[in-house]
Amino acid sequence: MSVCPRSNPDKYSRVLTSGFRAVVPFVIALVIGGAVLLATGHNPLAFYQLLVRESFGGTDRIAATLSAATPLLFTGLATAIAFRAGVFNVGVEGGFVLGGLTGATVALHAGLLAGCVAGALAGVLVSALPAWLKARWNVDEVVTTLMSNFVVAGLTGWLVTAFLQAKGVANSATPLIPRSAWLPDLLPPYGLTSGVLIALVLVMLYAVWIKHSVLGYELRQTGLNPRFSAAQGIRVGRVIIVSMLISGAIAGLGGAAHALGVVHRFVDGFSPGYGFTGIAVALLGRNSAVGVVLGAVLFGALASAGTTAQLFSDIPLDIVDVLSGTVMVFAVIRLWRQR
């Protein structure tokens, strides 16, 4: 007997409810940000208007928003796939970074396609050990994947300075990739990389695959109820490994696309934490394809608009950190409840 009136809603109100829940964190963030702005003597409405204009007010700004959203589409999707299988992979950052370095290095010598493939393989490599540890010994993947991020950060730093450093550059960076190996821009001169198309195609594939493929089915069931899945003959350990490897491949490909399409080399500051923002994207988007796109665009818009807003206002970047930080707090609460 059902006690909770929400447990059997019709479809319309269910969509409304989940839409409402997705918007709540953002509204609260706006309110908190507004309070901070008021307290520091700024006009919140004017600032929010500015943010909207800087996010979507014109082709160049939309290009900037999508450009900032692109790495988040990759990392959000990579995270969502693992989460969907019930694996809390927080190592997407590491996959993205190693994928970026590998892609940038391989593309130098072997071109665009090889760079992308190598990047994806590097991402697979990063997620392989935590995947095996989780599937074989049930070692908590949160710990192992988090640690793998640190290992990758140290490894890439060492590889660059010891072997891959560009000549004539004081800072830690690999050589500039030749133009022939770049991912082409979509909207010259606004610099929107075609990596965004790769990401969107992957998201669409994910939407279909997770719903209609045999493996997607097993992945969903494993995430919803691993005990049930095991009892029905789904090889849960194998599904977990596969989900982690796919997650790693997408993360690594994202890094390669970022290197080949945007930065054109691997440098210090290659990823300002795309993998971690990707966790928030996946959580807010409830691991769905549409949700990942919306979440990535939201954080992308905040990042790009928050930067250029400084051209028109004295309000420091910190206020944008307050906004995205508040949204992330909700994402973390959701993570905690999922766990």
């Binding site: 969903r220 069931q221 109820n225 029905q232």
Partner: peptide, 29 residues
């Protein structure tokens, strides 16, 4: 509640569990 059924999965998904591979063609359901 936790092993016989997956309570948050659809009836279709619950019903085909274990048989799903035979329903697939080239890996697609």
């Amino acid at each position: 509640r936790s092993e016989g059924l997956s309570m948050d999965a659809s009836l279709a998904d619950n019903t085909i569990a274990g048989t799903h591979r035979t329903l697939g063609r080239h890996g697609w359901l």
